[in-house]
């Protein structure tokens, strides 16, 4: 499903939830089923154990239902839901996770971890290399990695990421530029496998 279609569907569900009745109940169930699994994965990545993640997830949807009527609709519904999840996960962890600052030894570790084979299927080798590099990036910069996941999985624009991070669009644009720059440092060993056609 296209990003715009998905967002239109999500908005329709939110409207139904705000209106209440049987349709509202069905919309809650549909929205929950749509987002449950990716949100659980998101919460677990934010450090929640499976049980706590289920509790937090339920709390996310309690808040979604409670505030559905007030959803302003300036960004994607998904970015609003993930923003709620992010805040809850942060509260649950008591403090935001700090990004890891790598020293020389850390960078050497990353270089070793992401050292890639150039033999065999080049696309598979690239995927393996990027997988290792992105995992290392995610450990060092969990919030930045999450923004990229949402962009890939939910088609978030800069505005959607801005809502998720609770920043202005201009600040988010700068944040994402830095994000891409730092990611490329982690993907440096994959450079020889990357081919860009235009």
């Amino acid at each position: 499903m296209e990003t715009a279609e998905r967002n239109a569907r999500d908005r329709a569900w939110l409207s139904a939830i705000a209106a209440g009745g049987r349709d509202g109940e069905r919309a809650v169930a549909a929205l929950f089923r749509e987002y449950r699994r990716p949100l659980l994965a998101f919460l677990i990545r934010h450090g929640a154990q499976q049980d706590l993640a289920e509790d937090l997830l339920q709390e996310v949807f309690v808040r979604v239902v409670r505030h559905a009527e007030g959803f302003r609709g300036e960004a994607a519904v998904s970015s609003w839901i993930y923003q709620i999840a992010r805040n809850l996960a942060t509260d649950a962890a008591r403090a935001p996770r700090r990004e890891e600052h790598l020293d020389d030894e850390g960078w050497q570790r990353v270089a070793d971890e992401t050292a890639c084979s150039t033999g065999g299927d080049a696309k598979a080798a690239l995927d393996e290399c990027v997988n290792t590099g992105f995992a290392a990036f995610g450990r060092a910069h969990p919030e930045r990695a999450e923004a990229l996941r949402r962009a890939a999985l939910d088609g978030w624009s800069v505005r959607d990421v801005a809502q998720f991070l609770e920043r202005t669009e201009a600040a988010t644009r700068e944040y994402l530029s830095q994000c891409r720059k730092r990611l490329r440092e982690f993907l440096e060993p994959c450079r020889t496998l990357i081919v860009e056609e235009d």
């Binding site: 690239l126 990027v130 890939a152 999985l153 990611l183 860009e196 056609e197």
Partner: peptide, 21 residues
């Protein structure tokens, strides 16, 4: 193309999400 950096990253993220879900 499929061997561009963003497309490789997309495949990795989709695969990761699929396993976690």
């Amino acid at each position: 193309g499929a061997r561009s950096e963003p497309q490789a990253l997309r495949r990795v993220i989709l695969n990761e999400a699929s396993q976690q879900e």
